[in-house]
Amino acid sequence: MNPMNYVYLSALLFSIGAAGVLLRRNAIVVFMCVELMLNATNLAFVAFARMQGNLDGQVIAFFVMVVAAAEVVIGLAIIVTIFRTRRSASVDSANLLKY
C-alpha cells in the first residue's frame, strides 16, 4: 500500500482534532480532540519514518506518547478541579487565561 495514504489519514485525523478543539465547548471533548491531534502527528511521524527508512520518527513518536500521557494526567486533574469549583466544564464559561 502506498505509505502516503497514512499521511493523508494523519492529516484528516489532525483536521478533525483541530476542528474539535476549535468548535467544541466541553473541556473533556476538547481534551480528547487534542489527544487526537497528538496521535495524528504520531501517525505522520511513524509513516515518514517508514518512508525515509530510519528510526528517528519512531523515536519521536515515543516521546510524544510520553508527553501526551503526562499531559493527560495534569490536564484531566485541572479539568476535574475546574469542574468541581465552577460546576461546569465548558471552556467558554470562563476566560480563565485572562490575568
Binding site: 476549535l22 476538547v30 471552556v91 476566560n95 480563565l96 487565561l97 485572562k98
Partner: peptide, 10 residues
C-alpha cells in the same frame, strides 16, 4: 487577550 481558550487556540 480575551482569556478564552478557544480564541487562543484559533
Amino acid at each position: 487577550q480575551t482569556g478564552f481558550v478557544r480564541s487562543y487556540a484559533l
